[in-house]
């Protein structure tokens, strides 16, 4: 692909370069928020939203094609269901060991990463669910919006 056609869809070269740096950092921050949700403010939902925002930034600056190549929508919808399913499964595992959503994992030393039993696992499940779900919603709405906008143009003619 020539340099010129690469710049045709998406924003300018500056925004593309900056956003491809930032995407990784934003996603990393999202993972941090989700993984340390039991120790600091944050959690699965906030972390998932931040990671989804990284992909949305990629979509806005480059194009839908680029971000869908990195994160195909079929994978997004599968991960969406998988995250929710694993959260329910976590509850059911607790159910088998005493009570529904029982914290059945060995709790480690306080104020370390592995100190919360199942809460870390639940945060990860929610992170996967929210990340995939929000990105899928964004892509879905933008595809629908495109159809509507094109239809309106057709009406005006």
């Amino acid at each position: 692909m020539s340099n010129k056609s690469k710049h045709q869809d998406g924003m300018s070269l500056i925004s593309k370069t900056i956003s491809s740096f930032m995407t990784a950092l934003i996603a990393l921050f999202g993972f941090y928020i989700a993984f340390y949700g039991h120790l600091t403010p944050g959690g699965g939902f906030a972390g998932g939203v931040i990671i989804a925002a990284a992909f949305i930034l990629l979509t806005l600056s480059h194009s839908k094609k680029v971000s869908l190549k990195k994160f195909p929508d079929i994978i997004a919808s599968l991960l969406d269901n998988f995250g929710a399913l694993s959260f329910v499964a976590l509850g059911l595992l607790g159910f088998l060991s005493g009570a529904f959503f029982m914290n059945f994992v060995q709790k480690g030393k306080a104020f370390t990463l592995l100190s919360s039993g199942t809460i870390l696992l639940a945060n990860i499940a929610i992170m996967i669910k929210v990340m995939a779900g929000l990105f899928a919603i964004f892509v879905g709405l933008s595809i629908f919006g495109r159809i509507v906008a094109e239809g309106e143009k057709g009406d005006m003619r």
Partner: peptide, 16 residues
């Protein structure tokens, strides 16, 4: 909100 926006887009598609 997501459901409302999706419905609004679909309604716009039907009624223009």
């Amino acid at each position: 909100l997501c459901l409302m926006v999706a419905l609004a887009i679909r309604l716009n598609e039907k009624y223009r």
